[in-house]
Amino acid sequence: MTPPDTTPPAVDWPARANEAARAVTSRFGQRLLFLPGTHLGSVLWPSNRLTNLVSPWHYWWQAHYVDCLVDTGRRELGNGATPAARFNGPGNPSAGKLASRLVTGMRMRNLFTFVNNYYDDMAWLALATLRLQSLAEETRKPGRRRNARIHKTLTLQFESASTDDLGGGTFWSKKRDFKNTPATAPVALYYARTSQQAKAQRLVDWLNTVLFDQAQGLYVDGARLNAAGEITVENTIYTYNQGPVLGALLEIGGEENLARAATVIGAVDRHLTVPAHAVVPGSEPDTRTSILRCDGTGDGGLFTGILCRYLALAALDARLPEEVRSTAAELITATAEAFWVGRRTDGGPLFSVHAAQPAAGTYPAGAAVELSTQLQAWMVLEAAASLK
Score class of each variant (00 low, 15 high):
258 L>V: 13
279 V>P: 00
281 P>A: 08
251 E>W: 08
214 Q>R: 15
222 G>V: 08
229 G>V: 12
224 R>F: 07
244 P>G: 02
270 R>H: 13
284 E>P: 01
263 T>F: 00
238 Y>H: 14
219 Y>E: 12
212 F>M: 12
260 R>V: 05
218 L>V: 09
237 I>S: 06
255 E>F: 06
257 N>W: 04
246 L>N: 10
225 L>K: 13
274 V>T: 14
236 T>Q: 13
256 E>R: 13
291 I>K: 00
275 P>F: 03
294 C>V: 02
234 E>S: 10
290 S>F: 01
232 T>C: 08
243 G>E: 06
280 V>K: 13
289 T>V: 07
300 G>A: 04
228 A>R: 15
283 S>E: 15
250 L>G: 04
230 E>A: 15
301 G>R: 02
270 R>D: 13
224 R>E: 11
222 G>L: 05
224 R>D: 07
228 A>Y: 07
213 D>E: 15
246 L>V: 09
301 G>P: 02
240 Y>K: 02
290 S>M: 03
219 Y>N: 08
276 A>G: 03
257 N>C: 08
221 D>R: 01
244 P>N: 05
297 T>V: 10
249 L>P: 09
284 E>N: 01
291 I>L: 10
303 F>M: 11
234 E>L: 05
248 A>L: 05
302 L>Y: 03
290 S>C: 01
282 G>K: 03
267 A>D: 15
300 G>D: 08
